[in-house]
């Protein structure tokens, strides 16, 4: 078998099996973490800092959108949870949480 075939075969194994294994491990590990937090505190934050900032920006940019109310509700829900729970699922720091404000 030529060198090209070997390269493609090994590349396929790494790209496919590697990605699948990584995705499954990460998914199950984070699920465990979510469940532990939910058992301990009953609720968890739903957006990462980056995702919440993006949601905030979207709401500001689309105040009249039909989904704006839904987006605001989800934003506020995450802010409320972050300010209530002792431990967060995503990588939030306390200062950032203190700076968050609910949207009207």
């Amino acid at each position: 078998m030529g060198i090209g075939a070997w390269i493609v075969m090994l590349l396929s194994i790494v790209v496919l099996w590697g990605t699948t294994g990584w995705a499954m491990r990460r998914s199950l590990r984070l699920e465990d973490r979510k469940l532990r937090l939910l058992e301990d505190q009953g609720e968890i934050d739903t957006y990462s800092p980056r995702a919440l900032a993006e949601l905030h920006a979207w709401i500001e940019a689309h105040p009249d959108d039909p989904y704006a109310g839904e987006a605001t509700r989800r934003y506020n829900e995450c802010v409320d949870v972050l300010q209530r729970v002792p431990r967060t699922f995503y990588d939030w720091d306390r200062e950032a949480i203190q700076r968050l404000e609910r949207l009207e």
Partner: peptide, 13 residues
């Protein structure tokens, strides 16, 4: 854009 901001990146791993 709306879907990603509101739904897809919520609870995402």
């Amino acid at each position: 854009e709306r879907m990603r901001a509101i739904l897809l990146n919520r609870n995402t791993d």
